[in-house]
Nucleic acid binder design. Structure first.
Length: 488
RNA sequence: CGGGCGGUAGCUUAGCUCGGUAAAGCGCCUGGUUUGGGACCAGGAGACCGCGAGUUCGAAUCUCGCCCGCCCGACCA
């Protein structure tokens, strides 16, 4: 059954091999699988239906989670008056380099009195607006979210990973106590972890960001990091606790039970279309995408095989005798009736990463079987059509688990524990992955790691584990246990 | 935003050095033969040669400006 490894590698012809050039492989796959493209406007991408459908699956899953815990979707303005943006000092400084401005409008391109920023994120305008709706502790917590796109004037772009416009959700919540807001940030981090691990099948490290990497204006930032197949880490979401920083800047206050004026505590959090890129880079292979079943726009593709009209009619009758069962089982499936040869269709759907394929020809119809092939192992098994809905549901669940297990094994195999900066530098000269080490917490030492090890940064601080041993740079007792990596 | 490279049909590219009828493969359309791992034959459509200016009798080719992309740096969801 599995004699043809080399042969299988050749199935997809036009995609650069992952081992030859990971970056080109990534771009080839995203474009050939019809997920996204460049638009002609610098750094601005167009997300095509196949890619957008994956984002839709993520949106549905996450939207359900936050609705369940009382969050509500809003729509806030795209353009932000300059004065709003200027109020939180660290925030302005952090975002200033990447804000795009609208300075002219109208047929005569008249200069605006006040330039308007195209939102790079909406803390400022939401802060300025939301205070109207918060007067009493009874108005709290205020749990808002919006699904939108934002613009950041990036100098270098990559499909899904970094583009000048990207789609995301941004949640902004306001609370009566710091503890409640911190709990909120943690709750969302848990949701994000579930999206990454349970939906995208990408295992993640979670923890706090170092002060240098903390979101501008935040007290602390929680983050999750996945490991891509080239050994680079990718930030897959962030959840920020602001304390009263934004409330102070925007005067968001409420009357507490004692009838005293008090500033709110706030959070913000986001995941973006970058996750679609993460799924490509965490699971794909030389034949193209491998899409986790829970995200897959098409979970099961049926390839009919026939010689003539009579054969076609027979196969068609056979398929329609059990296709209803797939529908009843809630399986997203399609039958590929295109006028192409079977081999062409196999390669096509492998490139698109459809988890399970059913080959159905006359001999299957006669036997009441279909040939099931899964995208991960490529093993072919003949299965009876009786109970096919249940059978495929199980197979898809198993596929989802195997994909996660495989990614988790990859992450484990590429995670190391090192003690000194020399070791870290030597390590990253040779390979990628995560390196756990002790750190004293000093910003200077962090900068030294980044400089000496060629862009290696502190990705997460593991707060669940007590730091032991010494700082890898200065050998003072370590305050934190941190995961280091090169990242996108 | 700095340094390097590139842009010719839907895609990948040749042609450019040395100016002179725009080419190929893949893809697409039509017909036929085919169909259990990327088929074959025949015919056909498809190109403001990235955009604009300049030099020239004549520009895909030379010059300048701009736009877009790729690689390397700094910045980054």
């Amino acid at each position: 059954m599995k004699q043809e490894t080399e042969e299988q590698q050749d199935f997809v012809k036009e995609v650069t091999k992952m081992s030859d050039d990971f970056d080109r492989w990534y771009t080839d796959v995203v474009r050939k699988a019809e997920m996204a493209d460049w638009s002609g406007v610098r750094g601005m991408m167009v997300v095509r239906p196949y890619g957008w459908a994956m984002w839709e699956a993520i949106m549905r899953a996450f939207d359900d989670m936050i609705k369940e815990s009382g969050h509500e979707n809003w729509a806030f303005p795209l353009l932000i008056p300059r004065e709003y943006l200027m109020k939180e000092a660290e925030h302005v400084e952090g975002f200033a380099p990447e804000v795009a401005w609208v300075t002219k409008a109208g047929g005569g391109m008249e200069e605006l009195e006040e330039p308007l920023a195209v939102r790079p994120t909406s803390e400022t305008i939401i802060g300025a607006i939301i205070k109207r709706y918060i007067q009493s502790h009874r108005d709290l917590p205020k749990l808002t979210n919006q699904w939108n796109s934002v613009v950041r004037w990036e100098m270098r772009s990559r499909l899904f990973l970094r583009s000048r416009e990207f789609w995301w959700q941004e949640g902004h919540t306001f609370h009566a106590s710091g503890q409640e807001a911190m709990d909120e940030a943690q709750l969302i981090l848990g949701y994000y972890r579930s999206i990454a691990e349970d939906w995208l099948a990408v295992p993640v490290l979670v923890g706090k960001k170092s002060p240098a990497e903390t979101f501008p204006g935040a007290v602390h930032t929680l983050t999750l990091e996945g490991l891509m197949r080239d050994g680079l880490a990718l930030q897959m979401g962030t959840s920020h606790y602001f304390g009263q920083n934004f409330a102070r800047a925007y005067d968001i206050s409420f009357s507490n039970r004692e009838n005293e004026r008090e500033l709110c505590y706030s959070t913000s959090w986001g995941i973006s279309t970058r996750l679609v890129g993460a799924l490509v880079m965490a699971h794909g292979d030389d034949s193209g995408l491998i899409v986790p079943p829970r995200i897959a726009p098409t979970q099961v593709i049926v390839v009919p095989i026939f010689r003539d009209d009579e054969g076609r009619a027979k196969v068609e009758r056979f398929i329609s005798s059990w296709a209803g069962e797939l529908k009843a089982a809630g399986i997203r499936h399609r039958v590929d009736w295109r006028d192409e040869r079977p081999g062409d269709k196999y390669a096509h759907w492998e490139l698109k990463g459809v988890p399970i394929r059913l080959n159905v020809g006359a001999r299957d119809a006669d036997a009441g079987n279909v040939e099931m092939v899964d995208r991960l192992t490529r093993e072919r098994v003949s299965i009876p059509v009786a109970g096919i809905g249940q059978r495929l549901t199980k197979a898809l669940d198993a596929f989802q688990r195997e994909l996660f297990d495989r990614a988790q094994k990859f992450q484990r195999d590429n995670t190391y524990e090192l003690g000194t900066l020399d070791e870290v530098v030597a390590h990253f000269r040779e390979r990628g992955g995560f390196v756990w080490a002790g750190w004293c917490g000093d910003a200077e030492e962090e900068a030294k790691i980044k400089a000496d090890a060629g862009g290696v940064t502190v990705r997460v601080i593991d707060e669940a584990t007590e730091a032991a041993g010494k700082c890898l740079v200065c050998s003072k007792p370590a305050k934190f246990r941190v995961a280091l990596a090169k990242a996108y």
